[in-house]
């Protein structure tokens, strides 16, 4: 069964359709890229899945269960993790504490009022496991706001993994990174994908990166899904070429 199904979703803001009758599905353990020119609707696509917006029309299913209309936290608790295009952390908390919030939430410890948070070995162990996975162990005690941009993006991914998601949504994981950082981020995503068996859907502007790791590519243009296929199919698709290089005038 498909892990994620988007059925005929339209998302309008006033007169503008940010998404127009989008239909697609993602099977378990795929690594799917969503690409398209600026303003094509990629971030809206994520926001509809994670409950920031309720679609104007259409439905979203996760593991066969309808999730559009649920609150953000309820959707996350179904088993979806999400990272953000613009870094979105708890800036004044340490790296470990940033990860710990999600771990506490996942272990259902957050209503414990009289337990010292620094004396919870299972929580610490899980925090260490995640920091290790995203290569941030040495930075554990640094305040998140002082990390380099690349490290902050890695922390984003770590935070998205705290609820042991079955589906991981990464919004522009390499945005704002230099070439070397981009390369490392790609390695990291592949690594997470291999080690945890999670299904990943990501948006990305760097097409080299998309073609080097995706198992499948979805192309959005002006809110419409114009192509859906393997890397090779997408590379050859004339509609996609046109979307990127412009119409033949």
């Amino acid at each position: 069964m498909d892990i994620l199904q988007i059925q005929n979703v339209t998302m309008s803001f006033g007169k503008m359709n940010a998404l127009h009758e989008v239909d697609c599905a993602v099977a378990p353990h795929e690594l799917v890229a969503v690409i398209g020119p600026n303003g094509a609707g990629k971030t809206t696509f994520f926001n509809v899945i994670t409950g920031k917006y309720k679609p104007t029309q259409g439905q979203v299913f996760f593991k066969g269960e309808r999730i559009d209309g649920l609150t953000r936290s309820a959707i996350i608790n179904k088993g979806i993790g999400r990272s953000f295009q613009v870094v979105n952390l708890f800036p004044d908390l340490t790296v470990a504490a940033n990860v710990r919030i999600g771990v506490l939430a996942h272990q259902k410890q957050t209503l414990r009022l009289f337990k010292n948070v620094n004396k919870m070995p299972e929580v610490d162990q899980e925090v260490r496991r995640i920091l290790n996975l995203v290569h941030l162990t040495p930075e554990a005690d640094l305040v998140a706001a002082t990390l380099s941009h690349g490290d902050q993006k890695c922390l984003e991914m770590g935070m998205a993994l705290t609820n042991h998601p079955e589906l991981l949504l990464l919004d522009e994981p390499t945005a704002g990174m230099g070439p070397e950082e981009t390369r490392q981020a790609i390695e990291l995503i592949k690594d997470i994908w291999n080690k945890t068996g999670v299904t990943i859907v990501f948006t990305e502007h760097d097409l080299d990166m998309v073609f080097s790791i995706s198992t499948r590519v979805l192309v959005l243009q002006s809110g419409r899904l114009i192509a859906d296929g393997s890397v090779e199919e997408i590379r050859r698709d004339p509609k996609v070429k046109e979307a990127y290089l412009g119409e033949e005038a």
Binding site: T71, P91, M159
Partner: peptide, 24 residues
């Protein structure tokens, strides 16, 4: 100093991200 107190700090820092960590 409890896990609950940590959640409050998280809300202060970034309420939306706190929601995305699965906390209403």
């Amino acid at each position: 100093n409890s896990p609950f107190g940590q959640v409050l700090l998280a809300i202060r820092e970034n309420p939306i991200r706190t929601e995305f960590q699965g906390l209403p």
